[in-house]
């Protein structure tokens, strides 16, 4: 899980071109939108694309997306839940 979160932070920084941010600056549980990193609605679409491209996960329901993209922790938990064999 820790490894996944670290990788996810690096991918978020690259995808959103957060030039002055380092993975260590992103708190696992801090909100990604509004406060915290201060991301906006276009960034949320970029993160959806990241999930699809990097992890092969397509988020169909936008209401579900809101919960998934709350923090790095929630994103990592979602990815892990999709990757575990049923």
């Amino acid at each position: 899980m820790e490894e996944l979160k670290q990788k996810l932070k690096e991918q978020i920084i690259e995808a959103l071109n957060l030039q002055d941010t380092k993975p260590a600056d992103i708190d696992d549980n801090a909100p990604l939108f509004g406060e915290g990193l201060g991301l906006d609605s276009i960034d949320s679409l970029e993160l959806m694309v990241l999930l699809e491209r990097q992890y092969g996960i397509k988020v169909e329901d936008p209401r579900e997306g809101r919960k998934i993209l709350q923090s790095v922790q929630s994103m990592a938990e979602f990815i892990q839940s999709k990757q575990q064999p049923a």
Partner: peptide, 10 residues
């Protein structure tokens, strides 16, 4: 590259 899927909005 992505066959018309998963396109970045920006």
């Amino acid at each position: 590259q992505y066959k018309e899927t998963a396109l970045n909005p920006t």
